[in-house]
């Protein structure tokens, strides 16, 4: 095998620095048009990518496929060397430990405090307690929540809750951070704060993929922008813009 390439996939070899590869991926549900239709996509390690598009364009399906919550109807998806069509059910947890995920609705455990919510992620991957006690305060400091580690989730603002979710996603040091509408429930100030944190995380080497509707942020940040419409990629540009299709 040629140096710098990981594995042959059909006629194309996957370069070592490519963390996400989609080749002609189609995802159909039982009714209606396919949610994704023959999508091919290549994302390299350390990239910051926005995925934009209207509702029903296939963004959420794409995220679910990358998380291996869904299996493609056709085509191949390779994430960090894992073939997500063929991966065994028992291997999925190990695969997901390489990913950090942030949702629009935060999905925090409301009956636990800030520290417990972040430590929860470390417990799941069976990190020793000694390390958890070291890692959690450190990551909370990174998202500027060091002083609120004892607070209950309902005592925090929306922006703070999203920062807790971000800390939880990052504490296990993921290779890829997936964010599904992370600013969807936030005001502009908090939205910018979250995006700056993500940019900072990206600068430290983590690949960041953000699904968003926030035109202002996408256009200001000058990152790679993948635009989707009706299940296909209609545009994929470095330092792209989120252009209103209407």
């Amino acid at each position: 095998m040629e140096k710098g390439y990981r594995r042959k996939r059909g006629t194309r070899q996957i370069p070592d620095d490519e963390v996400i590869t989609l080749e002609n991926v189609t995802k159909s549900y039982s009714t209606g048009a396919p949610a994704l239709n023959g999508v091919s996509l290549h994302i390299k390690k350390g990239e910051f990518v926005f995925i934009v598009g209207d509702s029903g364009s296939g963004k959420s399906t794409l995220i679910k496929l990358l998380l291996r919550e869904l299996v493609p109807t056709d085509g191949e998806i390779t994430v960090l060397g894992y073939n997500l069509r063929k991966i065994k059910h028992s291997k999925i947890p190990k695969f997901r430990r390489n990913l950090g995920i942030v949702f629009q609705d935060f999905r925090l455990l409301k009956d636990r405090n800030v520290y417990e919510n972040v430590a929860f992620a470390q417990r799941i991957v069976q990190t020793p307690t000694r390390e958890i006690k070291r890692n959690v305060p450190s990551i909370l400091a990174t998202v500027n929540l060091a002083g609120k580690y004892k607070n209950k989730i309902n005592q925090l603002s929306g922006g703070e809750q999203q920062r807790v979710a971000l800390a939880r996603a990052l504490v296990n040091k993921p290779t890829i951070l997936l964010a599904d509408e992370p600013t969807g429930n936030l005001d502009p100030n908090n939205s910018w704060e979250i995006m700056k944190l993500m940019e900072q995380i990206n600068e430290n080497g983590t690949t960041v993929i953000v699904v968003t509707h926030n035109r202002e942020i996408v256009n200001a940040m000058k990152k790679r922008v993948i635009t989707m419409k009706k299940g296909v990629i209609i545009e994929d540009e470095e330092e792209g813009m989120y252009i209103d299709e209407d």
Binding site: P93, R107, L109
Partner: peptide, 16 residues
């Protein structure tokens, strides 16, 4: 259900 979903997304095994 949400708690179980979060655990699964983070990479918890079925046993855990």
């Amino acid at each position: 259900k949400d708690e179980i979903n979060i655990m699964k997304y983070i990479g918890a095994t079925d046993f855990f």
